[in-house]
Design a protein around this nucleic acid. Sequence first.
DNA 1: ACGAGTACCTGGCAGC
DNA 2: TGCTGCCAGGTACTCG
Length: 282
Amino acid sequence: MPELPEVETIRRYLVPRLVGRRITAVRFGTGHVKTEPGPSAFRRLLYGARVRGIGRCGKYLAVRLDKGRELIVHLGMSGRILLARQEDAEKSLARHERARLDLSGGLVLSFFDPRRFGRLWVKDGVARQPEACGIGRLGIEPLESDYTAEYLGNRLKGRNTPVKNLLLDQRIACGAGNIYSDEALFAARIRPTRTGASLNRAETASLASALRRVLKDGIRWCGTTMKDGGYVLPDGRTGSFQDRLRVYGRAGRRCLRPRCRGLIERVRLGGRSSHYCPLCQN
DNA sequence: ACGAGTACCTGGCAGC
DNA sequence: TGCTGCCAGGTACTCG
């Protein structure tokens, strides 16, 4: 699923290939994608715009355009961005291809989204409605320097919610989803079921640095591609962090920590499955 | 403010 | 083989 490392991998792939190009056509596929504003205004705002740069906020990709406009992409659960040469792209939009941008220089940028949890926004000018796409409510990103043990401690303090759910709350810290949250809790040796309030200072510090480390590793290995589809790079290649997961998706298998004989368990928390080792996470 | 629950969406798969 | 029903989960919403 696209979490921070996957979106960052996509961003790094796109930057050298997209910046400087102009959008020459905007098309929508079947099973209309959710856009803000609606399709016709969306198309009008993008048409003819030039790509100035590509940023990222948590799991949101932010394509900066000229005239102060910005295209924001959220991949949801199953969203994919693919970049192809015009001559290699089909004339008509493929199944699940919700939107397609033609770019100068003969490139085609496609947004695929089978499960339709993804969303697209065009912001017209920086001043207008900064929160229109939820980005305004995001917490600090774990890779930034102001994401400290003290910050995390303050946000977990007094919370009776399982720490796993708090890691998933993008208003506290943005970028981690189910996979990287489980991996960070394993690395910090903290059970996902522990409440935020129950963590002491040392555990909070350990968790903050574990989350940073896991997200950086995810980026280094170009993200996590699970069997059930989902994320790939814009050229179709898979990531490789799935081969380095230590708990996510490993229920019933041996803990990978040396000399630990635990079996990975799976529990449901807030409607999501969490994976942990009952022996080395306390 | 907080915590719990649920809708959204569809491909894949287990079970009958 | 074909059907049913559950599962995956990021976000936004409601309700108490």
